[in-house]
Design a protein around this nucleic acid. Structure first.
Length: 581
RNA sequence: GGGCGAUUAGCUCAGUUGGAUAGAGCGUUGGUCUCCGGAACCAAAGGCCGUGGGUUCGAAUCCCGCAUCGCCCA
């Protein structure tokens, strides 16, 4: 039960426009079927006010009247409270701009002061039940940097969606069945025999990373060494060989540790094998056959019928030898997820899997569900560079920089923030030297430094017996510097930014917002450090400014929290004092 | 050969779903400190938004062709 009494300023403005449009429809000025998306925007130039709307340009089309005339009609139909709005103006060629009174912006900060750790929450995404599945890397090797990007995106998105009132559960799907697990087991077996001096043929497509040898060496030393003396396939199903299970379990544990180091956790770890244990994979295949969405070919294989006129051909779900493909268990998995009652299944995939999307959607449709419940967010590749030079990542050879190495070298906060500073669906370059640099080149420290700086001010004030006051309307009158009014407005934008990031599934908007907000603060701080300090002999201004910077700190912490980045109370100066080690 | 994505300042990237004079960080150049934290601030220079057409009052944004890069599929 959120104590949200007041709507955000932006939400109010949207309502004012919407009501005006409705009124014009009632009066017959606009046709009843006039439909617009009420996109209000933030004007680039300050003189245009706080919110702008190009509605008259769209009205002009249907009304067949000049935009200026439409704008007059729109303005005439708007009823806005005088104590909240300073001006509603027409601007050529067809804008209506709204300037909100500083008092109205300031009123929104009451929520920040009363519940700093909840500010930005809304009901924008209420009613949705989302299952967010991400990473889901095979437990056949350590995570690489690309997985890390998906992990950070998913984790931040979950936090942002929850802030927007959406019920979210996060899940990691473990491919612990099949060829790849069998290949892992064979790789371990072969490496172990090498260690023991036994003849061994390493599988052609085996996993060549050094970790396989480490696992094999441990097994050879332990009580399982007898398995090395007999043929791999003598032990039963190749993906259930003790080595396959042991290696997968160990790699999965490592994956969890690596994600933990990055601050990413999951509500649920879902095993592919559990689908088989419950009979859901053959069950799904049988249902597809029964419904005519799959058929048996001449060789006895079962193929999923893609149907339609698409260029996408039918796909094998069960091979002629009776072994189901990964596609079969993916179908069963998504059906199972849908059966759990979510309104939306959001998957984060590497962009190299984009060709898989039509298949999964078709599979969902085959079970009679709306394929639009499946929403796939693609994460593009990460190119690692060091000082501008690309770090080669040979997947085949197993020679690649692991996620863990990057996190250990750069630190989780910088990794997360730099990933989230880019739109997910675009390739990005990740420069290790830049990420590691604790200088102004690195945006994450810029934001964190702002937070620490405010904390420092509040500590100083506390030492003088001063604390940020509770909200009251009269504090506003002491905040008249243009930078102060701008910060109040920026703070008021935050809930809208979070809601928009949630709706669009784009956490990077929060990161950019934080850069904006903290820039305003740094600028303000430096400009007035000699003239209009936060803590001064003027008690009235001091109280108001302590209130303001408290809110800045709270929103920085909150925003960083939505990205999973720490908001430190103080930061060590690198190179400022002693040289440690 | 088919498909997906990308192409915006020297570099790395935003651009609120078709709107106002296209923005930020870094880098470059030149400035600012009698410190509530200089990991800061201010200013300047820097653009045919890959290219050619189209759609309309209006395009970085939508449509088509082409070029380049990455990735899937064959």
């Amino acid at each position: 039960m959120p104590p949200r009494g007041a709507r955000s300023v932006e939400a109010k403005v949207i309502v004012w426009f919407r009501d005006a449009v409705a009124r014009l429809k009632r009066e017959g000025v606009l046709p009843a079927d006039f439909a617009v998306d009420l996109a209000i925007e933030r004007p680039r130039r300050e003189e245009f006010g706080d919110f702008g709307c190009a509605l008259p340009l769209q009205m002009a089309r249907v009304m067949k009247r000049p935009p200026a005339e439409c704008a007059r009609a729109l303005i005439g139909a708007m009823t806005v409270p005088d104590d909240e709005v300073a001006a509603v103006e027409f601007a050529p060629p067809g804008y209506v701009n709204v300037r909100v009174r500083p008092e109205a912006w300031f009123a929104g900060l009451r929520e920040v002061r009363e519940a700093p750790d909840r500010y930005g929450e809304s009901a924008a995404g209420a009613g949705e039940r989302v299952l967010l599945e991400f990473v889901s890397a095979n437990p056949t090797g350590p995570l690489h940097v690309g997985h890390g990007r998906g992990a950070v995106l998913g984790d931040a998105l979950a936090r942002i969606l929850r802030a927007a009132g959406t019920h979210v559960e996060t899940e990691y799907y473990i491919n612990d069945v099949g060829n790849q697990i069998a290949t892992l087991g064979r790789s371990v077996w072969a490496r172990g025999r090498e260690v023991l001096g036994l003849p061994a043929a390493f599988p052609d497509n085996g996993y060549r990373g050094g970790y396989v040898r480490d696992i094999a060496a441990d097994l050879a030393r332990g009580g399982d060494r007898a398995w090395f003396d007999q043929d791999y396939d003598a032990a039963g199903p190749p993906d259930r060989h003790p080595f396959a299970l042991a290696a997968a379990a160990r790699l999965l544990a490592g994956i969890r540790e690596d994600l933990d180091a990055l601050g990413v956790s999951f509500d649920r770890w879902f095993s592919e094998r559990s689908l088989y244990d419950r009979g859901l994979v053959p069950g799904a295949v049988q249902d597809l056959l029964a419904r005519g969405h799959a058929y048996r070919d001449d060789h006895g294989a079962v193929l999923f019928r893609m149907g339609g006129d698409g260029d996408d051909e039918d796909r094998v779900v069960v091979r002629a030898n009776g072994v189901p493909t990964y596609f079969a268990s993916d179908i069963a998995y998504h059906r199972e997820k849908a059966d759990r009652g979510y309104t939306r299944l959001v998957n984060i995939w590497g962009a190299d899997h984009h060709g898989y999307i039509p298949r999964m959607k078709a599979a969902i449709a085959a079970f009679g569900r709306d394929p639009s419940v499946l929403e796939v967010l693609l994460v593009q590749m990460v190119t690692l560079t060091r000082g501008g030079v690309v770090v080669p990542m040979g997947k085949r050879s197993g020679e690649f920089v692991t996620l863990r190495e990057v996190v250990d070298e750069v630190g989780p906060d910088a990794v997360r923030f730099l990933f989230l500073l880019r739109k997910a669906d675009a390739q990005m370059e990740f420069d290790l030297d830049l990420a590691k640099a604790q200088t102004m080149e690195n945006p994450v420290y810029y934001v964190q430094y702002g937070h620490a700086r405010v904390a420092s001010i509040l500590r100083k004030a506390a030492a003088l017996g001063l604390a940020p006051p509770d909200w009251s309307a009269d504090l506003r009158a002491a905040l008249v510097l243009p930078e102060e009014e701008a910060m109040v407005r920026d703070l008021g934008r935050f809930p809208g930014v979070v809601a928009s990031a949630a709706r669009r599934r784009e956490p990077h908007h929060v990161a950019f917002y934080l850069m904006d907000l903290v820039k305003g603060f740094h600028s303000y701080y430096t400009k007035y450090k000699h003239s209009e300090k936060v803590v001064s002999s003027d008690r009235r201004k001091t109280a108001a400014r302590l209130f303001l910077v408290f809110c800045v700190k709270a929103v920085l912490a909150r925003g960083l929290g939505l990205l999973g980045v720490n908001a430190p109370e103080e930061m060590r100066f690198a190179g400022a004092d002693d040289e440690q080690e």
